[in-house]
Amino acid sequence: MEECLLVERDGPVTWLTLNRPDRLNALSDELLKSLGDALEESTSTDAAVVVIRGSGRSFCAGYDIAPDSAEVGYAAERTPVQDRDRLLGNIELFTRIWRHPQPVIAQVHGHCVAGGAQLASLCDITIVAEDAKIMTSPALPLGGGYLSPLWVHRVGPQRAKLMSFDAGRKISGKVAAEWGWAAEAVPADDLESYVRRTAHSLARTPAPLLRLKKEAVNRTIELQGLLTYARTGAETDALLHQTPEVKYFQESIKELGLKGAIAAFNAPFAERFGRDA
């Protein structure tokens, strides 16, 4: 069985590749655990920079909510407290990226959806392909508040609300950089070589200096409440998972599949405004 996370050392740079290309690198429990373990292991190496990327066509399609995934209906199968604890566990993992002693770059191509955007939002530097598709939800209102606080941190409240309220809204990598969600956007064909060059350029600075520089910037953001409101988002999401509306959409995924459930959700809108509205 192929590893769900690939680890590669390239001199002072560690590459962590999400490796579930058949699922667009959707985040399973196994992949999340492997990512956490790899981050922990990287702290004991002499690497100066970490890069997180995705294999295949996309960076990450979010949490795995396909009909044959254990993620489907997870809110309904747990108590609200259990669900909140599960969501907080994900936040804690991504917080480990935020507080990792080495700078972490997210290399984003293809789709970057929901949990994938959450992961990238807590990396130190996000570099995207210009044609990447960035979304805060998998085109269905399956919860709320889990990602929005992190988007407030990156793009401000109005744009965070726009992405959160309008299910399935997406922006290109180019727009993501213009908004400030990403540091830079480059042509897709140049993305890997550009990130590799950037990572090695950062790694010229001694690792202890990089660590203290990172901590200085992060402390400023944390004083503004970043990690507190990221945790608050988990509580809001757990509450919404108990609503009849979200339970309806969860059942719709089971019955129709993810694509079918999205099509059913969009049908009235498409009928009124046209196929491409």
Results as ranks from 00 to 15, higher is better:
38 A>K: 04
60 C>W: 02
13 V>L: 12
56 G>L: 12
217 V>Q: 10
63 Y>A: 08
35 L>G: 05
154 R>K: 14
77 E>R: 15
19 N>D: 08
120 A>E: 01
60 C>L: 05
162 L>V: 10
3 E>L: 11
99 R>C: 09
23 R>E: 11
103 P>F: 01
99 R>A: 09
20 R>F: 06
148 S>G: 00
264 A>H: 06
106 A>N: 01
25 N>T: 09
36 G>R: 07
42 S>T: 12
189 D>A: 13
65 I>M: 13
264 A>L: 08
254 K>V: 09
165 F>A: 15
59 F>G: 07
257 G>E: 08
194 Y>T: 15
138 P>E: 07
64 D>V: 08
83 D>W: 09
92 E>N: 13
235 E>D: 11
12 P>E: 05
73 G>M: 02
127 I>L: 08
186 V>G: 04
259 K>M: 09
39 L>M: 13
195 V>C: 01
219 R>N: 12
42 S>F: 01
175 V>M: 06
243 T>S: 15
154 R>Q: 07
49 V>R: 01
34 S>M: 12
125 I>M: 10
260 G>R: 05
117 A>H: 02
158 Q>Y: 11
11 G>K: 08
271 E>N: 07
52 I>M: 03
6 L>T: 11
80 P>H: 06
62 G>M: 05
35 L>K: 08
157 P>Q: 05
249 F>M: 07
234 A>H: 03
40 E>M: 04
219 R>S: 07
14 T>L: 15
65 I>Q: 10
241 H>K: 13
245 E>A: 13
53 R>K: 14
194 Y>N: 04
148 S>K: 15
126 T>Q: 05
36 G>V: 10
246 V>G: 03
102 Q>L: 05
24 L>E: 10
150 L>Y: 01
60 C>A: 11
277 A>R: 02
56 G>H: 08
238 A>P: 04
272 R>P: 00
44 S>F: 03
51 V>T: 03
129 A>F: 02
235 E>K: 10
68 D>C: 08
179 W>D: 11
130 E>I: 00
108 V>L: 05
147 L>A: 01
55 S>T: 07
192 E>Q: 04
159 R>N: 09
